[in-house]
């Protein structure tokens, strides 16, 4: 059975930084949201946690593309992670979690797992 999810509002368009990332706090922990205005889709969300160091830093990496794949480079040890799949380009056995993300009016929403309490509230 697919776990129940909900679309959590995490920030507004004004919080985003074009061509870069910001970090938000969700019930699943820290998530990095990237806004790449020159691409379609323009919004990406992946875990903020760098799997190589364990530090919460991925939103602070440099974005770009490698052979067409949108990526962010970890600011600590510089591995690249695909923004679409979360897979590490240097070591495809490592993958960070990705989150569906959408723009709802002025709100940015992420699809996160719903735990009991909040799903009632939502």
């Amino acid at each position: 059975m697919k776990p129940r999810t909900r679309w959590e509002a995490v920030c507004t368009v004004d919080d985003l930084v074009p061509e870069s990332g910001i970090a938000v706090w969700t019930e699943e922990g820290p998530v990095a949201v990237f806004y790449l205005p020159h691409r379609l889709p323009a919004l990406f969300a992946i875990s903020h946690t760098d799997p190589f160091s364990g530090a919460n830093v991925l939103a602070r990496g440099i974005t770009g593309d490698l052979k067409g794949e949108p990526v962010v480079a970890s600011p600590l040890y510089k591995q690249h992670f695909s923004l679409r799949t979360g897979i590490c380009l240097e070591d495809d056995t490592v993958r960070v979690k990705t989150y569906p993300v959408l723009l709802d009016g002025n709100q940015i929403r992420l699809e996160v797992r719903a735990n009991q309490q909040t799903s009632i509230a939502a």
Binding site: V10, C11, D15, I22, A23, V24, W25, G29, P30, T49, G54, A55, N56
Partner: peptide
């Protein structure tokens, strides 16, 4: 310089 833009009082758990 906001660590988590939606949660100013949240400290980084790691």
């Amino acid at each position: 310089f906001r660590e988590f833009v939606n949660a100013p009082s949240q400290t980084d758990p790691v």
